[in-house]
Design a binder for these strands. Structure first.
Lengths: 129, 129
DNA sequence: GACAAATGATACAGATATGGTATCATTAAG
DNA sequence: CTTAATGATACCATATCTGTATCATTTGTC
């Protein structure tokens, strides 16, 4: 997990806890000590993904735009780090040399699938309870 | 998995198959089309780890120095990519802000443990059969 | 309407890791 | 002695990660 994802989890947990109340970037900086410009970028991304609603101008800020149980860690990872993959085939176009690599890749994909489904079970809701 | 690890798996499978026969870097380059200097660096590392025995000079090359079933993918990953971790705590020294992160980290560690034990089951022996 | 408080958009920068290259030293067989 | 091999190292290009800086836009309040 990268810092993006980690910060996002913490920010979302904080926002989810303060139900209804609008939260500003400044609030989050104060509470979580995340570098401000970094946090802002990340909040904007969450907004574009439809996870947060944003309100501009004085009195503005952010609110959850989805129920906390639909926001999973798997999803956050895929937002900030691209699709979750433990291993990627190096031979997209070219022919893959021998079967060993593919045997390995097959086993890894299996593990990957299990991990994905575990990460999908971890939601913001499950973290704040 | 990085390219290092991937190449290492393929190289070791190749070497494991040609039992007894000494294998040179040139053989591997020809068979697996891995960039030569990159491969050499990686073979040296496997040698230092005791996985390969090396012989210098004309007629030299590499041999397995361990039975294929003790060479696991988990071990190769830890050699080339450091200890296997899905997520790392960002707050080594400083106090961790709130419990959410630790709750999350706990769940991730659990998944991590399962993945590790799966990766430990995949050995060079299991790949060449 | 002016001002202040907030987000939106974007460009830039430093550090680190990854993937790969180049070079020279060392060893051993013939 | 020459040639074929590995050992050791230093270097480089690129991408990603983490973070900074700046300006534009919107909105509430006086």
């Amino acid at each position: 997990m990268t810092r993006d994802t980690d910060y996002a989890v913490r920010a979302l947990c904080f926002i989810a806890r303060s139900k209804e109340k609008i939260i500003t970037a400044a609030d989050l900086v104060a509470a979580l000590k995340i570098p401000r410009p970094f946090l802002r970028k990340l909040l904007q991304k969450l907004n574009k993904e439809g996870i947060l609603a944003s309100y501009k101008g004085a009195g503005g800020g952010f609110l959850l735009d989805e129920p906390p149980h639909t926001i999973t860690v798997l999803r956050l990872i895929s937002i900030f780090q691209g699709n979750f993959e433990l291993s990627e085939c190096l031979f997209k176009k070219r022919s893959c040399p021998g079967q060993d690599t593919c045997v390995l890749r097959g086993k890894i994909k299996l593990i990957e699938g299990r991990v994905s489904s575990e990460l999908k079970k971890i939601s913001i809701a499950s973290l704040i309870h």
